[in-house]
Design a protein around this nucleic acid. Structure first.
Lengths: 110, 110
DNA sequence: CGATGATATGTCATATGTGACATACCATCA
DNA sequence: TGATGGTATGTCACATATGACATATCATCG
């Protein structure tokens, strides 16, 4: 069941860090992890669509390449705050966030 | 214009801290502030609907009354992380978050 | 092969967030 | 009036997040 969910996530094209262990998490914890991944994914997609490097994105965000890499990897050292601030900084609107999160919910609940 | 937006927000029942100065913020900063307020509001609504005190909610969240008060006030010392984690902890689903954020967007954009 | 550019990973000093505590404020009730 | 219960505010020690740096990994090109 949980294993199949994980398989489903991976099949949907989400990069699930191998270090992430879904099997021990409560609903709340899982939701948070998946939220982080969804936002990460959004950020990477945005960057890729623009053909920017992590260095260039980092410059726009006034951050560093290494932190951008961690953001995009959904690293646990990255806060939801930073991800959200970054998305807003590159022009995302609350509506876009909502869309990303709703998609996430559909994967989780469906 | 900005003043009218503020009036609109207040009219809609949002508690805008008098210390918040909307007039100087970029779109990204404003979006973040408003996101914080929207989540704060959700949290308070949830608690009120249940007829819980801040002390009781704090116990559930393994936090403190004072922090709950700050969360509900949208205090800048509170991270979006904490708000999101709290909402998930009390049983909110990503879908609920998305709904809250979408409503926010409609207020901002509309 | 080496060189170049992009991305990933580990670490660290500093910045920011957090729970907890004290205490203030504000109703309501007796 | 005082007492009680709830909420707000200020502070602080400790915890966590952050940008920056070094360095590793990986692909592509010559």
């Amino acid at each position: 069941m949980k294993t199949s969910k994980r398989a489903k996530l991976e099949a949907a094209g989400w990069s699930i860090g191998s270090a992430q262990d879904f099997l021990q998490l409560s609903d709340a914890e899982r939701a948070l992890v998946e939220l982080r991944l969804a936002l990460s994914h959004s950020l990477r997609n945005w960057r890729k669509r623009r053909g920017l490097s992590q260095v260039e994105l980092a410059r726009r965000l006034k951050s560093s390449q290494s932190r951008v890499a961690k953001m995009e990897a959904g690293d646990t050292s990255v806060s939801v705050d930073l991800l959200v601030r970054s998305l807003f900084a590159i022009g995302a609107k609350p509506k876009d966030l909502a869309k990303t999160i709703r998609r996430l919910d559909e994967r989780v609940a469906g």
